[in-house]
């Protein structure tokens, strides 16, 4: 991180205007985040704490109420299109084959179809999709759909990738396989990844650093460095260091949940704790 951060977020707040005279919702309040080039950073937080909102802002889809997003140390003229973004749903187009889905970003970059296909096909093996080029997405398993969506994001070729709960809808076994696979892929390319999840173990296992967000209004309550050795193997989740980290991360989350079960707007206990 000494070499300057790849992505930096400063004092970011977002308040959604209540529709039709409804109450305003403060989704994010004074959020600060910093990620170095090639770093894998996760954000964990309870549902509704503003993780997707944060991603939408970084992706340039919505404007923050205040605060800045810096890429390579400066504010880009247009945020939209500057970072890779994988939304919470796979968003594969059912009318395109798997291959044509993965080349979407290349196609929109003006790459010729033949060339785009060649480039995508070269990655199908690594993404565990070989043999499914001509299939409709509807026929893929949940894990394969996520891998296809990830390949689409990879091929779009942005340095920074935002992955919003890519494994949230998968069963435990598939999820474990996908985590291992994602680590392998990341190890080879070293893209900068910002990864959202509900799952603390997943966050620790994958990341160099984990931010914990507290719910409503969403803010960063903890920034924890994970110095487990890489490449990591599943056994590491049983190591004492891992368990210590897990406890450290779970405490603020559990307290947030215990502080009312439902998210109540003013919950000062958490901030006092830190």
């Amino acid at each position: 991180m000494q070499a300057g951060s790849k992505l930096k977020i400063e004092g970011l707040s977002k308040t959604y205007r209540g529709a039709g005279g409804g109450e305003n919702v403060t989704a994010l309040k004074d959020v600060g985040i910093e990620i170095g080039a090639g770093e894998f950073v996760s954000i964990v937080g309870p549902s509704g704490c503003g993780k997707s909102t944060l991603f939408n802002i970084i992706a340039g889809l919505i404007r923050p109420s205040s605060g800045k997003v810096l890429l390579d140390g400066r504010q880009p003229d247009e945020l939209l299109g500057s970072v890779g973004y994988m939304p919470q749903r796979d968003c594969l187009m059912p009318w395109r084959t798997v291959l044509d889905n993965t080349t979407l970003g290349l196609e929109l970059n003006g790459v010729r179809k033949k060339e785009a296909h060649k480039k995508a096909k070269a990655e199908f093996e690594r993404f565990g999709l070989a043999g499914f080029e001509k299939h409709w997405p509807a026929k893929l398993s949940g894990g394969m759909k996520q891998r296809a969506a990830l390949l689409r994001t990879f091929l779009a070729g942005r340095d920074v990738m935002l992955l919003d709960e890519p494994f949230g809808a998968l069963d435990a076994l598939t999820r474990a396989n996908m985590q291992q696979w994602l680590l392998d892929v990341w190890q080879e390319d070293r893209k900068t990844i910002l990864f959202v999840t509900h799952d603390v173990e997943e966050a620790i296992y994958l990341s160099d650093r984990v931010y914990v967000m507290s719910g409503r209004p969403g803010r960063v309550s903890l920034d924890v460095k994970v110095s487990l050795e890489r490449p990591r193997k599943p056994e590491v989740t049983m190591s004492p260091e891992f368990l210590v980290l897990k406890q450290k991360l779970l405490r603020p989350l559990e307290e947030a949940a215990a502080g009312g079960g439902v998210f109540i707007d003013d919950r000062p206990t958490l901030e006092e704790q830190i």
């Binding site: 889809l61 970072v83 939304p87 749903r89 968003c91 187009m93 979407l104 779009a156």
Partner: peptide, 27 residues
């Protein structure tokens, strides 16, 4: 067409005509 898909297309720099052609029309 899913709003998430239209957003995804925006982040891939698709203009409104491309969003129509590639997502709204086929859907």
């Amino acid at each position: 067409a899913e709003p998430e898909l239209l957003n995804l297309l925006k982040t891939l720099k698709a203009n409104s005509w491309q969003r129509f052609r590639k997502a709204q029309l086929p859907a």
